[in-house]
Design a protein around this nucleic acid. Structure first.
Lengths: 189, 189
DNA sequence: TGTACATCAGTGAACGCGCGTTCACTGATGTAC
DNA sequence: TGTACATCAGTGAACGCGCGTTCACTGATGTAC
C-alpha cells in the first residue's frame, strides 16, 4: 500500500473545496486546473489521480447549496419551523453579507446564466439543486393546494435573480436598492 | 480617400451585430475575435480597424436591450399605455419563445451572472441598462408614491432571474414551470 | 522491533491547441489632374 | 471622360501566452517478513 484511502479522500475534498471557492470567485470558465490545485496546496499533475477531467470536477464542485443548508439547518430541531422563520432565511439570503461573500455564497445565484453554457454534467447537477431547493421551499410556505410549488419557483427566481443583478451592477446604491426591493417583495408573500 | 466613411460605419455595425449574436449564444467569455469576424464575413486582422480591443467591443455590443425596446415600442403612439399592456409585455418576455431564442433575446437576462466578472466597461454598460429599464418600467406601473421604483426593481429581478433559471435548467418541464410561475407572480402585482 | 519492498499520490516538464493582438501586405476605392 | 495616384479597410501569417492533459519520475507510506 502507499497512502491510506482516507488520505486520498481528504485530498479529494481539499481539491473540491478549493474548486468551489475559485469557481464562485472567478466563474465556471475562469478557473485553471493549475490555480485550483495550487489553492489546495498541490501541483497540476496530481489532479488526474482524483478526477478524470475538469468537467467532472466542475460538476462535482457544483453539488453544494448554501440555501438548502440554510433551510435545513434547524430542521432537525423537531418542531416545524414557522413561515416567518423561512421568510427570515430568505431575507438573510438577500442581504449584503451574502452578496459580498460570493466565495462562500449560494452556487444557484452565482452560476445562474453561466450554467446554460456549461457541460451537461454540470447542468444536470444544477437542475437537481433547483428541484431540491424548490421542494424544500414549497414545504415551508403556507399551504394553498398546488399553488405552493409555483410560488416556490417564483420566489427562487426572485432571490436568485435579485442576488445576481445586485452582484452584476456596478453601483453600490443601486445594488442595495435591488436587494431591498426583493426583500420587500418577499415580505408581501 | 479609400472607402467612404459610410462603408466603414456599415462594417462596424455588421461586426457589432455578429458580436451580439455570438456573445448571447456562447457567453461573454466564449467568443473568439476570429469567429465573430467570420460571422461578419471578415477575417481577424480587420477587427482592430474598428475596435481597439475585444473588451471595448464587448462593452459596445452589450448596449442593446430587447426589453427596453419592447416597452418603448408603442410609446410614440401618443396615449399612455395601460398597466395591463405592460403586464402583457412582461408575460411575453417570460415566454418560451424568448427563452428559446437567446441569440436575439434580452442581454440583461442572458448576461446576468457573467457580468459580475466582466471588464469594468461592460459592467458600466450593463448597469446603465438596468437603470434605464427600471426607470421605464417604474413609469408604467400603477403609481403608489415611491414604492413604484422598488417594485420595478423586484419585477426586473423576477423576470431576469426567471428567464436565466429557465434557460439554465436541463429539464423542459421544470423550465416551463419556472416561466409559468413567474408569469403568475407578475399577474398578482 | 527492524528492514526491504511494492504501491501509487503527487511532481513538474512537455505536448498540442486556441486565443488576443501585431504587422507587413494588398487591392478596392475616391480624388486630382 | 480617362488615367495615375494616395489612402486605408481588410488580409492572413506570425507572435507570445495560458490552458487541459499526458507522462516519466520520485518519494512517503503501509505491509510482509
Amino acid at each position: 500500500m502507499s497512502y491510506s484511502p482516507a488520505h486520498k479522500e481528504r485530498t479529494r475534498r481539499r481539491i473540491l473545496e478549493s474548486a468551489r471557492r475559485f469557481l464562485k470567485e472567478q466563474g465556471l470558465g475562469g478557473v485553471s486546473v493549475d490555480s485550483l490545485m495550487a489553492g489546495a496546496g498541490l501541483t497540476r499533475g496530481g489532479f488526474y489521480a482524483h478526477f478524470s477531467s475538469k468537467d467532472e470536477l466542475v460538476a462535482a464542485a457544483l453539488d453544494d447549496t448554501v440555501l438548502l443548508g440554510f433551510l435545513q439547518k434547524h430542521k432537525s430541531g423537531g418542531t416545524p419551523e414557522p413561515v416567518h422563520w423561512t421568510r427570515a432565511v430568505l431575507e438573510e439570503y438577500l442581504g449584503p453579507l451574502h452578496r459580498d461573500q460570493p466565495a462562500t455564497g449560494c452556487p444557484l445565484a452565482i452560476h445562474v446564466g453561466e450554467i446554460t453554457l456549461a457541460a451537461p454534467q454540470a447542468r444536470a447537477v444544477y437542475t437537481n439543486l433547483v428541484k431540491e431547493v424548490a421542494t424544500e421551499l414549497a414545504g415551508r410556505l403556507p399551504r394553498n393546494a398546488q399553488k405552493t410549488s409555483s410560488e416556490a419557483l417564483a420566489i427562487l427566481a426572485l432571490i436568485v435573480g435579485g442576488m445576481a443583478l445586485a452582484r452584476g451592477v456596478n453601483d453600490t446604491e443601486l445594488s442595495d436598492a435591488i436587494l431591498a426591493a426583493c426583500r420587500e417583495a418577499i415580505s408581501d408573500l
